[in-house]
């Protein structure tokens, strides 16, 4: 009876050894997390969601450390359950970084598009205003100068459109914003000249 018990205990220990000893590196999960990080990088998460992106990069390094820590152990004692939990969190964080980057990028793109859409009509308004401007001795020369200024702004707007087409939305937004500000300044200058003429 005792022999039978001993044999049973040994069989159980052997089976457990086999089960635990066969714990594998969660390679599939690791690859999925790395792919998610690459996908986040592809949508410029490092530029549009830098904090989230950096956190994911750090998580992957921490996971690597955890996996190697387990790999350093005797096969019987290895456990990748913590690494798996961390990988699941890293995958979610990478997807979140990607989604946030896409959203932020879209927001900047929409702002750039919005500003660029406003510049054309703003330039047209200034040109209409020019027709009402005084055309005395200095007036004509000033109008010529303003026209030259508008041409420079239009060239800058063209650069903003190129940046937008190339996916550099931050540059496009900056340029569009600057262009719009300059057009507003020209418009104000013109309005003042007109008011002066009208004696307001």
């Amino acid at each position: 009876m005792k022999v039978k018990t001993l044999v049973a205990v040994l069989v159980v220990i052997f089976a457990m050894t086999l089960i635990v000893g066969c714990a594998k590196v969660p390679q599939q999960e690791l690859d999925a997390a790395k792919a998610a990080l690459d996908a986040a990088k592809a949508v410029e998460a490092d530029r549009y969601a830098p904090e989230l992106f950096n956190a994911v990069k750090d998580s992957l390094n921490a996971i690597n450390a955890e996996i190697e820590k387990q790999n350093s152990k005797f096969a019987l004692f290895r456990s990748y359950s913590k690494a798996k939990t961390m990988l699941a969190a890293a995958l979610a964080a990478a997807n979140n970084a990607k989604d946030t980057a896409v959203a932020n990028k879209e927001k900047v793109k929409a702002e750039a598009n919005d500003l660029l859409a406003k510049i054309g009509p703003a330039i047209d308004d200034v040109k209409k205003l020019m027709k009402k401007a005084p055309r005395g001795k200095e007036g004509r020369a000033a109008l010529e100068a303003m026209n030259a200024d508008l041409a420079t702004v239009e060239a800058s707007v063209a650069e903003a459109n190129t940046a937008l087409a190339n996916g550099d939305f931050l540059t496009a937004r900056d340029k569009a914003q600057a262009g719009l500000q300059k057009v507003a300044a020209i418009s104000e200058e013109l309005q003042q000249a007109i008011n002066k003429k009208l004696g307001r």
Binding site: A145, A148, D149, T152, V153, S156, L170, R173, D174, K175, Q177, A178, G179, Q181, K182
Partner: peptide
Amino acid sequence: DNRLRQKYVLSELAIMESEAAFKRQDYKK
């Protein structure tokens, strides 16, 4: 001449772009 005036306006535009980049803490840009 207009060539000089263009440089003047370009400097105005560039400084506005610089301010925008500064606001979002992109100091390099």
